[in-house]
Design a binder for these strands. Structure first.
Lengths: 225, 225
DNA sequence: GCTTCCGTTCAGGCCACTTTCAGGAACATC
DNA sequence: GATGTTCCTGAAAGTGGCCTGAACGGAAGC
């Protein structure tokens, strides 16, 4: 699954790149609009993440020129929060979806997945760990035969940890991935949600799914505890 | 099932393309009349969606030339609401059906299906979920033996959710698919229609067909509740 | 022209969820 | 074992997503 990221902010581009590579995507990055346009025409990608504010040629023009050339690779546009650049125009120029900055990585990933699914390029994803099954498409979570209702945030945290099953994941990483990049709150919020997940997924079943690695973070047992 | 879309508005072309691909169609897009004419003559399509207002050669001429050349692929014409371009002329030049802009995706899909059925290229479709049966052709909906009268919008919302039965569908997706592409109103309208459907399909039968997934959207139970 | 039905908007209210907070437990370090 | 740090945990506060009834305007039918 090949992704092209066209984004001039190196910090954002890097973060997205690492995240997507960890997800098994093959990632290319272009730092300018002209580079992005060239790469998109020269190589086949499954999806393109395209910032609007770019040096040289802005995202609208890149999108427009690709479409004019008959290239209909799905495009996810990144727009800033405040006016000047507009969502409507993004869609007018042929983008498939847009995301307002600041955004969290899981949201980006979810939108990317949705895009790939809608365009029939991706097979559905289901996460499992032992008898734990989590399906982002139907938004269902079950342990064995028992369905466990989760809230949106709980679901997002669990989904992220499942993608990193077996690894130690720091609170900072969870915050960066599940909450907005701009989130400025207390990291304790992560502890709170881990608590919620444990209460719903561990205690009723007498298994410990999520272990605390003191001083480092948390680790989800790929065997389901 | 191969479809050619001839439409210069990239937003519309893209949206229709995605929707049809998700329905299992193979879709090509042409952004100008001349391109469209060329593609239609070079490749065999099962149906053509043809906008009237096009740069270069307008839809009437494209249609006319195709028919003159002995190409009788079914054509669905897209006409603007106000005068200037006329429905009658569309049919005169050899189109099989027309649709007035702005339109919603489900309506387009329905007309396309009808066209394919009339020309003997497609088998009829009926949606079911448990004892719920919805027939887009006769526009009927019944729960068990009881026929449930639905308005046009209610029907469209239900049909869309049935096509995505079991999946979480966001309000935005429902809006994009059931309302005009140009619709700029309050997403609350979706809540209102979910309410209507529940009142007609859930309450009288004591079953919950549509579940609210807070923060994500709605999910129709493929088992019918 | 009148009535009825439908689509849409609006505003009030509720409650699930998110987030904050503060006290306490567990652990590490010296 | 004293001290400090990290994490756990329950409860409270605040937000906002969703529900719902009603009202408005327009279109279609009589």
């Amino acid at each position: 699954m090949r992704v092209l990221i066209v984004e001039d902010e190196k910090k954002v581009a890097g973060a997205v790149r690492r995240g997507l590579e960890a997800e098994g995507f093959a990632v290319d990055v272009a730092l300018t609009g002209t580079d992005g346009l060239w790469m998109a025409t020269e190589h086949p990608y499954d999806v393109i993440v395209l910032d609007i504010m770019l040096p040289g040629m802005n995202g609208y023009r890149v999108c427009e020129q690709l479409r004019d050339a008959g290239n209909w690779t799905p495009i996810l546009m990144l727009t800033a929060k405040d006016g000047e650049y507009d969502h409507a125009e993004a869609l007018d120029t042929g983008a498939d979806d847009y995301l307002t900055k600041p955004f969290s990585f899981v949201v980006l990933l979810a939108r990317l997945r949705a895009l790939l699914r809608r365009t029939g390029r991706a097979r559905p994803v289901v996460y499992t760990a032992g008898n734990l099954v989590v399906d982002p498409v139907t938004h269902r979570c079950s342990r064995g035969d028992v369905e466990v209702p989760l809230t949106a945030r709980e679901f997002a945290v669990l989904e992220f940890m499942l993608r990193r099953a077996g690894e130690v994941v720091s609170k900072g990483e969870i915050l960066d991935n599940v909450w907005d990049f701009a989130f400025e709150g207390d990291p304790n919020i992560v502890e709170v949600y881990i608590r919620h997940l444990r209460r719903k997924l561990d205690e009723p079943f007498g298994k410990q799914l999520i272990a605390t690695i003191r001083g480092a973070g948390y680790r989800l047992d790929p065997e389901g505890g």
